[in-house]
Design a protein around this nucleic acid. Sequence first.
DNA 1: CCCTGATTCGC
DNA 2: GCGAATCAGG
Length: 196
Amino acid sequence: MSWTDERVELLKKMWGEGQSASQIAKELGGVTRNAVIGKVHRLGLSNRATGGAKADAKPKADAKPKAAAKPKAPPKVKAAPKAEPKPEPKTEPAVAPRTAQSLRKQIIPAGQPLPPQPSANEISPEALAKVNEVEKTAKKLSLMELTERTCKWPVGDPATDEFWFCGLPVQAGKPYCEAHVGVAFQPMSARRDRKR
DNA sequence: CCCTGATTCGC
DNA sequence: GCGAATCAGG
């Protein structure tokens, strides 16, 4: 496959949307994520953030067999604040994460309309839909079966035997799979403009 | 182990 | 220009 105009355009579009290189490669077909990344770099849009802020590339490769001379760069300064609301599943759940399910169940008396949850909503419909989708294909692991790379998103009521953990592969680092990361915490662009 | 992007270099 | 191999890291 070659980088036709269309393919490059799609690449730019997806990259701009924040899609990962592997996703782009998959979409394009016939190329690997490496190819995509390589192209991205050659196109000069390696850094998704521009606007003046100099992009201090990270010259990492060092112990390369054939590598000749590499400029050594000062230690990169990267701050990654991580504050994740990780549900500690115990015997008694204090508050269940807002899954589509638990949202309905929760401690709300039957027949009662859902009281306005302060910050419980505001979750993009797409994200919720994705969660519902994922729950169908979830591994449904028990607490004991959870590992470092299984989604720890609890589903259902722990007091029931209908309780299980998602168990799908976690994103990188995060405690949840992609879908659940989506609803677990919304960085900031959650409320875009549903003005009207 | 899964994934991510970054870099190098033979082609 | 291309992208596999490799590297660094979450």
